[in-house]
Design a protein around this nucleic acid. Structure first.
Lengths: 92, 92
DNA sequence: AGCGTCCAATGCTGTTTCGGTATGGTGTAC
DNA sequence: GTACACCATACCGAAACAGCATTGGACGCT
């Protein structure tokens, strides 16, 4: 599992469409599709239901989405905190 | 930034020694050393002070360590939650 | 001072991973 | 039935990665 896969998952969950999510991530559809498949494989469960109109979250996907968002937010916070501390240290 | 890099960082922070951390992660020293350098490069700050006896956390590293642990814990929680939900769905 | 030791960093190479292009396969709408 | 949307797969070239070997620096011992 990688942060890239998690980002891909969130994008697909929000767009409910792999192609659109791919454009949003500046990627093409096939790798993004593979990210989702790899995640599902690693977790041992389908996260999305494939419908003719796109991707629809399954219960396991809903559960994962909450954690995924928290993970990405925490990463973001980590980066900002480190930069803050570094800047403060620079002054001292 | 990748989860692998974050795991590497935590291991080095805890072992205060790249070689030992590498063994713990079933890796060799050079890639692990590069993980830390890559992280520091990406964050724009040194996270460790290099001493003759090993690695010592700098303030920015201390700050990052807290977030790093939370990220890894959250990933772990995500996996378990998804598996739980999937198992419950299986029954239903 | 010189040597052995322990440390992290770097040069290099073989392998693996990864993204993009092209294509397949399926379902819907008209 | 033809056209059009969707996701999945095959294939290939390029980038990323781990491991081996080595370097460079700091310490301790004699």
């Amino acid at each position: 599992m990688s942060l890239t896969h998690i980002q891909s998952f969130v994008a697909v969950a929000e767009e409910r469409n792999v192609g659109r999510a791919a454009r949003r991530l500046h990627l093409t559809q096939p790798p993004l599709s593979r990210h989702i498949l790899a995640l599902e494989d690693e977790l041992g469960t389908r996260l999305f239901e494939r419908t003719p109109s796109g991707m629809r979250l399954l219960p396991a996907g809903e559960a994962f989405l909450q954690h995924a968002r928290r993970i990405l937010a925490e990463v973001d916070a980590a980066v900002h905190t480190v930069r803050d501390v570094a800047a403060r240290e620079q002054d001292a």
